[in-house]
Design a protein around this nucleic acid. Structure first.
Lengths: 137, 137
DNA sequence: TTAATCTCTACTAGTTTAATAGAATTTATA
DNA sequence: TATAAATTCTATTAAACTAGTAGAGATTAA
């Protein structure tokens, strides 16, 4: 399941994607339109900025805008940025790999292979959903 | 990601699936072999029992055994039993549906459709992984 | 009757989540 | 240059969740 934070991030990106090119959106406007607590949204937008998905302009008349094209931002990207691994266990993860401490041998693990299959299919599905594809629907 | 509990449940089921037919396994043996804290495993086995995946025999020489055939127990079943919804948000879930409180209109929600697509694909993948398929590998 | 086992309920330390608060910094413009 | 409007940064917090631990009770075989 997505965290509330990830869901808010998606809603914020959807908002930005629906603005005219070169338009800069204030946090306040996004928060109101997408129904997100403003101070929480501030943090989320900063995270999105650090993840290079949005850019910002500081000071008066500043705000946020999409940095990457909306058809280049996938659900997989956002999931990884906020909720981490897409795989069901760290030992089956591409980007967040970690060994299981309670696992005797990774090669002999009966679970890992199945979980990697799931990961591949879920990842493919999540990479197929972009901000652009969501806006179009 | 799977919780530790779900992972332990899977490991316990894999252990049970590898025993001879009609064999009854003690919690202690499963805990040792699968490297699971015994008292925690007790709770997990009870949950599996309440979920009708395993059966038990009480008293001396009692223990646990698979109730359903190992090719009928899917990763989706176990996920739902312990970690709940497979969908990424409750509003896109089949078995754990819940309306989003911060969502103005479900029909107009740009997210929901995409998340239902992911759900369908993930579910299909998870239903393709059974305890039997994991043991065979 | 006893030993071995499952069953049930309660408790707990630590972590994570979803915020909230407030001060600091940056920028446009009057 | 002062001010207003915005982002940026750091700290705090209440509530929920996770991963166990503890112990007593019920059941069964011998």
């Amino acid at each position: 399941m997505l965290s509330q934070k990830t869901k808010y991030a998606l809603k914020a990106l959807l908002y930005l994607a629906q603005q005219d090119a070169n338009h800069i959106s204030k946090t306040t406007d996004i928060a109101e339109e997408a129904n997100i607590p403003k101070k929480f949204l501030e943090q989320i937008l900063l995270d999105l900025k650090r993840g290079h998905l949005v850019g910002s302009k500081q000071g008066k008349f500043g705000g946020y805008y999409l940095l990457k094209s909306k058809d280049e931002i996938t659900l997989a990207d956002i999931h990884r940025l906020f909720d981490g691994a897409i795989a069901l266990l760290p030992c089956a993860s591409l980007n967040f790999y970690e060994r299981c401490s309670d696992c005797k041998s990774e090669d002999e693990c009966l679970l890992r292979h199945g979980l990697m299959t799931i990961r591949d299919e879920t990842l493919k599905a999540m990479q197929g959903i972009t901000i652009a594809s969501l806006v179009k629907k």
